[in-house]
Each structure stands twice: as C-alpha cells, then as structure tokens.
Simulated scan of single mutants.
Amino acid sequence: MERRNLYNAGASPCRPHPAPQAEAVYLPGTGHVAMVRLSGESDAASIHVFREVLAATAEDRLIVDLTGVTFADSSLLHALLDAHRGLILAGPLPRQLHHLLEATGTTTRFTTAPDLDTACETLPRVG
C-alpha cells in the first residue's frame, strides 16, 4: 500500500477540539482506487482538509473511511456530494453522520459498506 499523508491540520491553541486529519492510501490490485481516511472534527472551519485530499486524488473511485470522524456537519455532507465519483463510504459510520444522511435524505446517494474490508471486497480486482 502506498500511503501519503496529504494533510494534517495540526493542533492549534485557537482550535480546542481535535484537529482533523486526512490521508490517501492507494490500494494495490484495485486499478488505482484510493482510500481516503478522515478523522477528527469536520466542520466549516476544517473541511478544507478533506477537500484538499480529495482534490489530490484523481482516481475515479474512492473509498472514504469516516470511522474516525468525531463530529460532522453539513459541510462534510456537501463535500461528499461534490466529490461523488464512485464513493464508497466505509463504516460503521459515526451515529451523528448517519443521522445527518438520514435527515437530509441523502443516504441513498452513496454506496455504503459496514466496514473497510467489505468496502474493498466490493471493488473489482485487477492484476
């Protein structure tokens, strides 16, 4: 697995909650599929972290691991909808994010998997 930590917002005395982190991992044998792992709090002040990682991954299909997200608001939902290019959301999704998708009626806009292994199994294998 090729791993690139594309952005770590780092801690800040002005930002008391956990700094968001995002990284892209390229999965071998999947034909250029990337997994983007997001953790920490994702809100309007920090969504640029996730958007920068998505912009740096040009793959047509992405697995997005959101299990480490501790808070998410509509800015994360908007980023997911904007980036919808064969996204598979790997769970289990944090309860608050699951409720956000249900409340906005966007649950069916994404392919979801109960865990990362299942998300990887849904991809066609190459090579």
Results as ranks from 00 to 15, higher is better:
65 D>R: 03
60 D>G: 15
99 H>A: 11
85 R>S: 12
121 E>D: 14
49 V>C: 08
104 T>W: 01
112 T>W: 07
25 V>R: 15
45 A>G: 10
34 A>K: 07
73 D>G: 12
98 H>W: 06
91 G>P: 04
116 L>P: 07
4 R>N: 13
66 L>R: 04
44 A>L: 10
67 T>F: 01
102 E>L: 06
32 H>G: 14
89 L>R: 00
73 D>I: 04
27 L>V: 15
38 L>R: 04
54 L>R: 10
43 D>L: 00
51 R>F: 02
95 R>I: 02
26 Y>G: 04
36 V>I: 15
73 D>R: 06
35 M>C: 14
53 V>P: 03
46 S>K: 00
48 H>K: 06
59 E>R: 12
32 H>T: 12
120 C>Y: 08
29 G>M: 10
125 R>E: 10
77 L>P: 02
42 S>H: 11
39 S>F: 02
71 F>M: 08
29 G>P: 09
20 P>W: 00
61 R>D: 00
2 E>Q: 14
114 P>E: 14
28 P>E: 13
115 D>Q: 05
25 V>A: 11
60 D>Q: 15
105 G>W: 00
124 P>Y: 07
76 L>G: 03
95 R>H: 11
6 L>P: 04
57 T>A: 13
54 L>P: 02
24 A>P: 10
126 V>I: 12
20 P>L: 00
71 F>N: 07
43 D>R: 01
108 T>P: 03
111 T>L: 12
125 R>F: 06
55 A>G: 12
119 A>P: 04
50 F>I: 10
56 A>M: 09
18 P>S: 09
39 S>N: 10
5 N>S: 12
31 G>R: 11
104 T>I: 01
58 A>H: 15
45 A>R: 05
73 D>Y: 07
102 E>A: 10
124 P>V: 09
102 E>N: 09
64 V>L: 08
45 A>T: 08
12 S>E: 07
101 L>G: 11
117 D>P: 03
18 P>Q: 06
109 R>T: 10
22 A>D: 03
112 T>P: 12
28 P>W: 11
93 L>A: 03
30 T>D: 09
50 F>Q: 02
6 L>D: 06
43 D>K: 01
37 R>T: 15
33 V>A: 09
92 P>E: 02
24 A>D: 11
87 L>A: 05
19 A>N: 09
24 A>Y: 07
102 E>D: 13
31 G>W: 07
127 G>H: 13
110 F>N: 07
101 L>P: 10
62 L>A: 11
41 E>S: 08
111 T>K: 12
114 P>S: 14
113 A>P: 12
14 C>Y: 13
37 R>K: 14
52 E>A: 13
111 T>I: 14
2 E>C: 03
125 R>N: 08
48 H>Y: 10
22 A>C: 14
93 L>V: 02
25 V>T: 15
47 I>G: 03
123 L>M: 07
53 V>E: 01
107 T>I: 02
122 T>W: 05
66 L>T: 09
29 G>A: 11
36 V>K: 04
5 N>Q: 12
60 D>W: 06
76 L>H: 04
123 L>P: 05
5 N>R: 13
4 R>W: 14
29 G>D: 11
99 H>Q: 13
121 E>P: 01
70 T>I: 00
103 A>E: 02
61 R>P: 00
22 A>H: 05
72 A>M: 05
112 T>N: 10
32 H>I: 04
9 A>Q: 12
113 A>V: 10
83 A>G: 14
40 G>C: 05
